[in-house]
Every structure is written in structure tokens, then in C-alpha cells.
């Protein structure tokens, strides 16, 4: 195969999408996970259920509603258009929003588990040692929840890499904008370009495997042990 003709764009877009999504999810997911781990409010179960929804919903259902919401007439899409003049649907930004919702549980759940494992005790200690709640979070809770963070980053990243249905519904297939690896593979197969499909598929397979392998190896060596 002539690699000079090979289209690298889907790979770059996929990586960019996954990285952006994970970053956004860490920012948004950390407070949600923290709240879920520590609140005693009864309606936390409601939030937990909503966060877990993407795990069970067919991606097409999520994609369908997202398409409506992000569309020019949708609540979010319409607002976005009046503010920026751009459309959210079938754009990279729209794709990031969709991916973030789709991968939300993969980031929130490991973080919540980690925060619950850390518990309140170390935070109480920190507070008796003059650490403000934010200080205690940064210097005690976060380092102790490091494994949770690594799991969240890897699962969030890997899951975004592999999404198909939501992307197809919300992002479409615009080269250089929303055409990610999974869509590209589908296209190649449709047009019987098995070589290209092989190349992308095998690449994704090996990459995913290596990432997970690295993480599990790293996880065993981390100096953080809850005793």
C-alpha cells in the first residue's frame, strides 16, 4: 500500500477528539464524582442513574437526542448559533460535547469509586492540620485517588476512540472535521477498501492494547497504597 496516499486525518481527529473529551471530562467529572462520593442527599441516586445512562442506552438513542439538542433549532445548538454564528451539529465542537456525554460514566465512576475509597478520614485529618477544603483535596484526596484518575483517563480516552453511533448521528462524516477512525473504517469497508480498513483497525487494536497494558503495569507500581 502506498502510504503517501494514506489519509491520516481521521487518526489525528480521533486523537484530538479523545484528548479534548478527556480533559473536559476531568474538569466536569471531578466535582460530580466528588459530590456523588460525599453527599448524603437522597437525590444523589438520581444523578448516579443519569450519569450511568450512556452505559446502557444504544448510542443511536443518545445521538438522536443530541442531534435534536445540538441542531440549529435545538436548545443548545440554537443558543450556540446566536452566540457564535456557527452550527454545533456536524462540527468538531458538537462532537466533543456528544463524546463527553457518551463517555461521562467512564470518567465519573472510577473517580467516584476512588474518592469513596479515600473516604473522609484523611480529609478530616488535613482539616485539623490547617488545610482548607481545596488544599486538602489537592494535597491529600487527589494523590490518594491517583489510581482512580489514571483509570478514568484511560477508560475515557479509549471509550471515546471507539465510539461510532453517536459520532455518526451528531458529527456525520465530514473529512477533516468530524471523520474519526471508526467512521473511516466503516467507509472503507463499505467501498471494499479492505487494505485501508485493515490498517486502521489493526492500528486501533494494537494502540488500545498497548495503552491498557501500560496502565495496568503502571498501576501495580504506583507508590500510592491505602493502608
Amino acid at each position: 500500500m502506498d502510504t503517501s496516499l494514506f489519509d491520516w486525518q481521521p487518526i489525528l481527529i480521533t486523537l484530538k477528539l479523545a484528548a479534548t473529551t478527556v480533559l473536559l471530562l476531568l474538569v466536569v467529572g471531578t466535582p460530580i464524582a466528588w459530590w456523588l462520593a460525599h453527599t448524603k442527599k437522597r437525590w444523589r441516586i438520581l444523578v448516579e442513574a443519569v450519569v450511568a445512562l450512556p452505559l446502557v442506552l444504544p448510542p443511536t438513542v443518545l445521538g438522536f437526542y443530541l442531534l435534536i439538542a445540538l441542531g440549529t433549532n435545538g436548545m443548545i445548538g440554537g443558543w450556540f448559533q446566536t452566540v457564535t454564528g456557527d452550527s454545533l451539529a456536524f462540527s468538531f465542537t458538537g462532537l466533543v460535547i456528544a463524546s463527553s456525554l457518551y463517555s461521562l460514566p467512564f470518567v465519573v465512576q472510577p473517580l467516584q469509586g476512588a474518592f469513596e475509597a479515600v473516604g473522609r478520614a484523611p480529609l478530616e485529618v488535613a482539616s485539623t492540620l490547617r488545610a482548607s477544603p481545596l488544599d486538602a483535596f489537592m494535597t491529600v484526596a487527589s494523590p490518594l485517588a491517583l489510581r482512580g484518575y489514571i483509570t478514568a483517563i484511560v477508560l475515557g480516552f479509549a471509550h471515546t476512540l471507539g465510539e461510532f453511533g453517536v459520532v455518526l448521528m451528531v458529527g456525520g462524516n465530514i473529512p477533516g472535521e468530524t471523520r474519526v477512525i471508526s467512521i473511516a473504517i466503516y467507509d472503507h469497508v463499505e467501498s471494499l477498501e479492505y487494505m485501508q480498513a485493515h490498517f486502521l483497525s489493526a492500528g486501533l487494536l494494537v494502540f488500545s492494547f498497548l495503552v491498557l497494558l501500560t496502565v495496568y503495569a503502571l498501576n501495580r507500581r504506583l507508590p500510592v497504597h491505602l493502608s
Binding site: 478520614a121 484523611p122 478530616e124 485529618v125 488535613a126 482539616s127 485539623t128 486538602a136 500510592v224
Partner: peptide
């Protein structure tokens, strides 16, 4: 809040920071 009180507190189970 406790972090603004001039206290020292020793817990029954020591609670050292493991990291």
C-alpha cells in the same frame, strides 16, 4: 471550620497520610 481553629487533633487510629 476546623482548619481555622487553633487545635491539634490526634485520632484513635493515627490516620497518617499513606502517600
Amino acid at each position: 471550620p476546623p482548619h481555622l481553629r487553633p487545635i491539634g487533633f490526634v485520632f484513635q487510629d493515627a490516620r497518617l497520610f499513606p502517600h
